[in-house]
């Protein structure tokens, strides 16, 4: 970003979901995160895990916010990073699925225990751990669904939350195989 004010076209910021394929190497994630902090971009959510242990590739699913000019910058800057091979803008490409997993610990006694289980059932959460004064629920789905569930749980007692962040994939039959073959 220049020190001079940018052109005064005020364009709304939108949320974008990016899907990256990167080398599974020490330092790659640091490079991606360093790009965002160094250039003042936002990260709303980020997940990373290996997806191909022969080619040693990982996928980074990343949710960011910005004007279309900023998003284009982010994508071009990401592609400059040597171990970043593919940068896809799922929001731009078309319909896609966004999913996240949450683990929610709820400390609860008395009548609210039944309410908690009822809510969990409605949301199709799984109960992973039970004690006489607590539960641990596991829930997957859209981030907004997780938000709603967590809000309800908070009203029932003391909670502890752990969320994975968004993982995303495009809908339909198209895959990245051709792109991956070039790596």
């Amino acid at each position: 970003m220049s020190v001079y004010q940018k052109n005064e076209v005020k364009e709304a910021e939108t949320s974008r979901t990016l899907s990256l394929v990167v080398d599974n190497q020490p330092g790659t994630l640091a490079r991606v995160i360093g790009l965002f902090s160094g250039r003042g971009y936002n990260i709303e959510s980020l997940t990373v895990t290996e997806i191909d242990n022969i080619k040693n590739l990982s996928r980074i699913s990343l949710v960011t916010r910005g004007t279309s000019m900023t998003i284009e910058q982010i994508k071009s800057q990401l592609l400059r990073i040597v171990p970043v091979h593919i940068v896809r803008d799922l929001t731009l490409e078309g319909p896609f699925i966004k999913s996240e997993l949450a683990l929610v610990k709820l400390v609860v006694n008395g009548a609210n225990r039944v309410e908690a289980l009822r809510v969990a059932e409605t949301f199709r959460a799984r109960t992973l751990d039970v004690t006489l004064s607590s539960f641990v629920f596991e829930l997957t789905g859209k981030p907004s669904k997780l938000d709603a569930f967590i809000e309800l749980m908070r009203s029932l007692g003391d909670t502890e939350i752990s969320r994975t962040g968004v993982s995303a994939i495009s809908r339909g039959y198209k895959t990245e195989t051709k792109l991956l073959d070039q790596i």
């Binding site: 001079y4 000019m69 284009e72 071009s76 592609l79």
Partner: peptide, 11 residues
């Protein structure tokens, strides 16, 4: 030669 230079500060 660097795509990220395009539209960085001037459209």
């Amino acid at each position: 030669i660097d795509k990220s230079s395009i539209n960085k500060v001037v459209s």
